[in-house]
Nucleic acid binder design. Sequence first.
DNA 1: ATGAAAGTACGATGATCGTCAAACTTTGAT
DNA 2: ATCAAAGTTTGACGATCATCGTACTTTCAT
Lengths: 108, 108
Amino acid sequence: MVADRIPEHPDVRTVPLQQVLEALVDPVRRSIVTQLHDADADIKCGGFNISVSNSTATHHFRVLREAGLIRQHYVGTSRMNTLRDNEINKRFPGLLEAIVTADRVATN
Amino acid sequence: MVADRIPEHPDVRTVPLQQVLEALVDPVRRSIVTQLHDADADIKCGGFNISVSNSTATHHFRVLREAGLIRQHYVGTSRMNTLRDNEINKRFPGLLEAIVTADRVATN
DNA sequence: ATGAAAGTACGATGATCGTCAAACTTTGAT
DNA sequence: ATCAAAGTTTGACGATCATCGTACTTTCAT
């Protein structure tokens, strides 16, 4: 069934800060979040500019999903990723914006 | 000599975001930063409410210092810690405030 | 039906990191 | 001079984590 391929998503209001920070401290995952933020649109897993293997990428997407940072749904064989920035911003005001902005600083 | 006991401090304008986030992702270190922020005053190493051994605490203070988050200076045998919040805020606007605020959320 | 496309799941591995105990250093008080 | 107070330094140990290759699953196009 289609729904079986959709993984579980946490309620952002119950996700601990610790988990969100652990998700965002990894450079690859932070890059994924930044690309989603800058694109202001959904991006499928294969559509990101990251240089890790497929299985590693899957791992990173799961960490981000379980931290409530992204939402995933299928379109055909592609898994689309949506940034849950509104929900995250309600829970931890200013956090995502600050990190995405900081990631754009010249001398990163 | 007295000056020999003062460790080196980085220029915050050259500290990478990665290093700052790695410093803040540890709960003990984040607690130290939060306590400094809330106290709005210097606190000596032994004056924090943390439950790790002395040597572990030293390790955490070094990580925070090298990330440009705190400044340390000696007063007698005590090492005083100052939060470098102004400098950090210039480099990564809103980041420290967002994390400290998030740390105060009820369901952390 | 068959094959390609897009990811996922499953170990395994190597590196990093938080933690501690024990020994040491520096300063201040007696 | 001596001793306690406050931290630091130095290994050592466990646990966690990012990474990969391989095998597997699901969907879509031919």
